[in-house]
Write a protein that binds this DNA or RNA. Structure first.
Length: 109
DNA sequence: AGATTGACGCGAA
DNA sequence: CTTCGCGCCAATC
């Protein structure tokens, strides 16, 4: 399970207050198209308890509906508690919360 | 080995 | 803006 393990390692690196899209993770695994495989991996996550899978959302910033943690509302609450910003659309503010592998260059201006 | 599915992503209508 | 369809990858039957 190289791919699967790879996904876990990446998701684990997601800091609080930030979110990553399946496509983003898929890209890091080496398979930029394996967005579906990423979700599949998380679904099978053997250590999902320690994986911030709730920080993994759609490209649109939308959350997974009905499959996770008990509901997207719960996931949203978790993300907000982490510091993730949400828009009036009920979606994650990917503009500010899109996770990047690169550390903040200005360290917060 | 072939067919099917699934926490996706994007283009087109 | 919403809905439909196709492609992608990996895992499972």
């Amino acid at each position: 399970m190289g791919f699967n393990d790879r996904v876990y390692e990446i998701v684990r690196q997601i800091p609080e207050g930030k979110v990553a899209s399946y496509g983003q993770i898929a890209y890091m695994t080496g398979s930029w198209r394996a967005s579906r495989a990423v979700g599949y991996a998380l679904h099978n996550s053997p250590h999902h308890a320690k994986l911030p899978c709730h920080r993994v959302v759609f490209k649109d910033g939308r959350l997974t509906t009905g499959f996770a943690f008990g509901g997207k509302d719960v996931q949203r609450d978790m993300l907000e508690a982490e510091g993730v910003v949400f828009t009036a659309d009920g979606r994650v503010d990917m503009i500010k919360c899109c996770w990047s592998t690169q550390e903040a260059p200005g360290a917060g201006d």
